[in-house]
Amino acid sequence: MNAFPASEFLIFVIFWLFAGATVGGALFAVFTKWIIRSVCGLATASVGLAGMFYYLNSPFLAMIQILIYIGAVCITIVFAIMLAEPDEPVDAPGMHSVPWNIGAGIVAAAIFWGVARLGVTGDWQTPAVRVSDGSVEMIGVALLTTHSLALEVVALILLVSILGALAIARKGRHIE
């Protein structure tokens, strides 16, 4: 007998809360008119994704998701918005025309139908035995032994991207 009779219900509710945050945030990010609200939608979707990762047995990735997506990506996009004013004027024809939107919706619906059908009806094989539990300790060991090259490559990519971003954004800057 479970000592907390409502815990299953709570797990269920929190799961759908996170799933709703993912889908709702993504929809808000796509449909809102102002880019800054779109960033807020992306942040909400990232929180939902972090919750999904938590339910998928990886609290480590949930933390990293919040750190990188909300702490780094969203903040960087907000900085770009402050520098580049991406909003259109209110009276200008902002979004594309209605047929274009309908076409985009049809394409997205087709992709969703195909991928979701593959996911649901696919012949997925559950492994008979698991060699590790995917805990944080195992990830740390794997990062420093088996996958150390991947870790180094990620570090190199980040370094090069920082230098590249500095070089691109710096060029063309001159004192008036």
Partner: peptide, 20 residues
């Protein structure tokens, strides 16, 4: 898997729709 497909579709829709 369905949630991931839905997220992919939403992202694709936005990618086509946005003009900035």
């Amino acid at each position: 898997l369905v949630l991931a497909a839905l997220l992919l579709a939403i992202g694709l829709f936005g990618f086509i729709r946005r003009n900035t």
